[in-house]
Design a protein around this nucleic acid. Structure first.
Length: 623
RNA sequence: CGGGAAGUGGCGCAGCUUGGCUAGCGCACCUGCUUUGGGAGCAGGGGGUCGCGGGUUCGAAUCCCGCCUUCCCGACCA
């Protein structure tokens, strides 16, 4: 699959382990010849799971001695983990460079001015780390760098000939997460590769977007990460077209849908509901009527009451016949608040994540008792369209689910406790201020693009690409002379990969009950060499020779040369650490054999000592 | 922001209800001997302001008050 030179021929991970190539160098022995020796490696594996770790990647990375918690939402990379991290970073960097993108590097600590110019100083809300210097000037620890890239291009690019341009950095980012969790998957400090493209026109942006999309596909394939590309919302960044790369993992925080028959896939935040047929207008609809429905503040009690006291002729009343009106309070980043009413079919709840995404950058809060007191027209449990809408007495903006099409009839609150309206027709009896597609998405919902139905799964966001447009370029006055000579505002794209998160995502998708199983290019070594025998037995000198031979052949070796450690411990540690190939110098040695074990499959075979280097090279080449 | 759970040697935990003597167990660590293909055995040893502050008491890991931190869950459903 991978050409051999890609897999290990260039010993990137170990090159820096040879700080001085002169033969006189007598530093730590484990740096010699690219052999990592467990006897001197700064590593302690843990027999038990740490109490604060829940998800597999967090548990195994801590137990295996890759990372240690250093702060809430912050981790220290230990030697083994840092090797793995740099392998991931290197692959990402190589793929970016191969795509023709150029690497730069900004400070993480930035002044507030550029972010004030684009509005993100306030729009980013409490998730932004803000601080002041000794003079009282505002600074931030950057969560992303759109502003700085834009300003850099404004500084340097002087002509349309300088575009298209795609530049990137690999940088530590900061977000003051309300609740860091799941180890590396959601921290307050993390490493991200972020790229930005600059083009004169929309066609150019589309091409740059596609180039990044292709580069991301090859990057994630090389990282060994399974992924799904889904339509997404752009959140606080602004912008239009946007797709996320999600690694489908149950512990992921994102929920996405996929169509079972066409290629449609979307984050639930961005799912568009399938179009609902407009009812036939030629069939006369009876006028709306108010009925007494005492003690029915919930959809369930309402439906029960209707079926018991006001049965339909044709069928039973169901929750989908009702229109539920939810009122929330929006908190704008500038501190203003605004109530918003949302009408959804009674069989569905409002999905808060979808709502948050739809109203971003505003934040959504519950409508509390004080809010109800300020709007006496809202009868809790019996709110109807009669008191909602910008033109109504309450003046509360009223948006309805797309399923509430003109001509559809509903049972909904009559704005009096214990009363509902039956047969209230949208477009005839009430007109909403617009639609909002934020009702929960369910397994089996119709696909918006074909006749199929949707399935739901969870995933980790490992990459996000979107077409920003001119928001940042305009705000920061980036203008470049076009071919015609007139000044034009370039259009931008923004593309991110979570580097530290990718390590966790790989661990999450490459482990079993015994420990990690790293993809070879990510793994801290190619071969984990074990001595299984007495400390003074014949295995040790054989293993020492093998370590040297493996290394000379260009293989990265993790050598368990510890003394006084029982074989069981060595086997357990090897399985926990997850190097793809394990070579055991043990009891077969008298017959001239060592054991070669595949970490993932568990398959083991005895190989002649003199042939084992070639054997392992062949294993690497063939898989 | 709300709700749960928890803070006791490096790690994982018990002890707390019903206050009391030297704060205990497993792992890890140190010394010695034995052991060496699945997280070894025996013997000896070191290491803890019981999260922080205050209070009750002759006496507090234990009871009371306040604070801090960590983990999990929820984010509001008419």
């Amino acid at each position: 699959m991978l050409p051999i030179n890609k897999a290990w021929g260039k010993p990137h991970a170990f090159r820096s382990h040879q700080p001085n190539s002169s033969p006189e160098y007598t530093g730590c022995q484990r740096y010699r010849a690219g052999v990592l020796r467990l006897s001197t490696l700064f590593l302690k594996t843990l027999r038990e799971d740490p109490a604060d770790a829940e998800v597999a990647s967090h548990r195994l990375l801590v137990r295996g001695g890759f990372i240690r918690r250093a702060a809430p939402g912050g981790f220290t990379w230990l030697p083994l983990g840092w090797i793995v991290y740099r392998n991931v970073e290197r692959i990402i960097r190589e793929e970016m460079d191969a795509a023709g993108f150029q690497e730069v590097h900004f400070p993480a600590l930035l002044p507030s001015e550029p972010y004030e110019a684009t509005g993100r100083w306030t729009d980013y809300g409490p998730n932004l780390f803000r601080l002041q210097d000794r003079r009282g000037n505002d600074h931030l620890l950057a969560p992303t760098h759109e502003e700085m890239f834009t300003l850099l291009v404004r500084d340097i690019a002087t002509s349309y000939r300088d575009l298209p341009l795609s530049i990137y950095q690999i940088q530590t980012k900061y977000r003051d997460e309300a609740r860091p969790r799941a180890g590396l998957l959601r921290g307050r400090e993390f490493v991200m590769k972020d790229s930005y493209s600059f083009d004169i026109d929309d066609d150019g942006l589309a091409r740059s977007y596609q180039r990044h999309r292709d580069a991301y596909i090859s990057t994630f394939e090389r990282l060994g990460l399974p992924f799904v590309i889904v339509s997404a919302t752009s959140g606080a960044m602004g912008g239009s077209a946007s797709e996320e790369f999600l690694a489908p993992i149950d512990v992921g925080e994102d929920t996405f849908v996929r169509c079972t028959s066409c290629g449609y896939a979307a984050n639930t935040e961005a799912v568009e509901s399938a179009i609902v047929a407009v009812p036939d207008a030629t069939t006369p609809t009876p006028p709306a009527s108010v009925v007494d429905t005492p003690g029915t503040p919930t959809i369930a009690t309402l439906v029960d009451h209707l079926n018991a006291h006001l049965p339909r002729d044709d069928r039973e009343w169901v929750a989908a016949d009702t229109l539920k009106n939810v009122v929330v309070m929006l908190h704008q980043p500038d501190g203003n608040t605004e109530p918003l009413a949302i009408g959804v079919p009674g069989n569905r709840d409002v999905d808060m994540k979808r709502l948050e995404a739809a109203v971003a950058p505003a934040e959504v809060a519950a409508f509390d008792e004080n809010d109800f007191a300020a709007h006496p027209a809202l009868m809790k449990g019996y709110i109807g369209p009669g008191v909602l809408g910008a033109a109504s007495t309450s003046g509360i903006r009223y948006l309805v689910d797309p399923r509430v099409v003109d001509g559809s009839a509903w049972v909904t609150g009559a704005d009096q406790t214990g009363q509902h309206v039956i047969g209230l027709v949208s477009g005839r009896d009430f007109i909403a201020d617009g639609t909002i597609d934020v009702a929960e998405v369910r397994e089996g919902d119709p696909c918006p693009q074909c006749d199929g139905s949707l399935t739901i799964a969870r995933g980790i966001e490992i990459g996000h690409i979107f077409q920003l447009g001119r928001k940042y370029a305009t705000a920061l006055e980036l203008r470049i002379p076009a071919e015609s000579g007139e000044l034009v505002t370039p259009t931008m794209g923004s593309y991110g990969i979570g580097v530290s998160r990718a390590v966790a995502a790989i661990a999450e998708t490459h482990h079993d009950e015994f420990g990690l199983c790293w993809p070879r290019e990510i793994a801290p070594a190619d071969v984990h060499l074990i001595i299984a025998g007495r400390d003074d037995g014949p295995q040790r000198p054989v293993a020492e020779r093998l370590a040297t031979k493996f290394s000379a052949a260009g293989l990265r070796v993790l050598f368990d040369d510890r003394e006084g450690v029982s074989p069981g411990v060595r086997f357990k540690d090897a399985e926990l650490i997850g190097v793809p190939t394990i070579v055991v110098a043990g009891r077969g040695i008298d017959d001239g054999l060592v054991e070669v074990k595949d970490r993932r499959s568990g398959e083991r075979i005895d190989v002649d000592i003199d042939a084992v280097v070639d054997h392992v090279r062949a294993v690497i080449t063939n898989n």
